[in-house]
Simulated scan of single mutants.
Amino acid sequence: MKLHFKKTGAGKPLIIVHGLFGSSDNWFSIAKELEKNYTLYLVDQRNHGDSPHSEEWNYTVMADDLKELMEDERIHSAYFMGHSMGGKTVMKLAMNYPDLVEKLIVADIAPRFYPLHHQQILEGLNAVPVDQLKSRKEADDILTEYIKIPGIRQFLMKSLGRDDNGKFIWKINLPVITEKIGNVGEELKSDAPFEKPTLFIGGANSDYITEKDKVDIERFFPNSRLVYIKDAGHWLHAEQPAAVIETVKAFLK
């Protein structure tokens, strides 16, 4: 699949992959600092942002999408950074195609299985009648019944766009994501470990990477280290961008 992406900066390629319900826009503030030293590719994963929609949605095809992007851009190897679902995508890429990945950064996710925990969000998104919607405020009012935290609603509303006729649409492929949401929590396994330098960045206030996860991390990524960002939860790049930028810069150097 030909993914939509934004390219900026100069230097060694660094491909950044967003998480569930997100898009390349989530990484703009980080990109402004990193583009001084790297050629950045801010990617919209399939069924998200401005990339195409597909009934096929799992980590194998999402990793293959990144491989195809590299082939199209004639990139032989690159640095990769992925957050949450995007972190699992880049882990899968490193497991399947280790030669394509020079260094790997995984933000607040481990290779283990995660149980369903997005049902309330999906109920809210599906409750919005986009084909009848008159304003963004109307959508926000409906989402408020399901999602009380304004920051989460604001993040989700970034996926509310308009078609060529000016009618509201979800830019995410909501039907497929709703049907196949279990794929997001899939456990990743590999017969061969990824031996190249890998950095796991966790939010100190997040429970996505626990002490128990260190066993799998060290088994599949033996040349890795884990750093926790102080005063940050799962959305560490939004909550503590300066700390994330400095951590990433130090690792890539």
Rank of each mutant, 00 (worst) to 15 (best):
E145I: 02
L3C: 06
N96P: 00
Y97L: 03
K2Q: 13
E138F: 08
Y146R: 12
S159A: 09
K158M: 03
Y38C: 07
A232M: 05
E145W: 03
F221C: 08
N173H: 06
Y38V: 10
N58R: 02
W57E: 05
M62D: 09
L14N: 06
W235K: 02
V43Q: 05
K212W: 03
A31D: 06
D231M: 14
F221T: 07
S24T: 07
L188Q: 05
K167V: 05
Q120N: 04
R225I: 14
S24L: 13
F21Q: 06
P129V: 15
F5V: 03
D141A: 14
E218N: 15
F28L: 13
V106T: 06
A94Q: 10
G19H: 08
D231L: 10
L20Q: 13
R162Q: 11
V176H: 03
F113A: 12
A107H: 00
Y97H: 08
D44L: 12
K230P: 00
L20F: 14
G185D: 03
Q240H: 11
E211I: 09
T144M: 06
E56A: 10
G9E: 03
E102P: 05
G161C: 04
D50V: 04
A238V: 09
L34E: 08
R219W: 04
P222D: 10
N126E: 10
I30M: 15
S24V: 10
V17R: 00
L20A: 12
D72I: 15
F221P: 01
M95D: 02
N47S: 06
I209F: 10
L20V: 13
R153H: 08
Y38D: 09
I229N: 01
R225Y: 14
R153D: 04
V128I: 07
E56G: 00
E179L: 13
L125A: 03
L20W: 12
T39Q: 15
R162S: 01
L199S: 08
P197K: 11
F80Y: 10
T144V: 04
N126S: 08
V215R: 13
I209P: 07
M91H: 02
R74A: 12
E246K: 15
H18F: 11
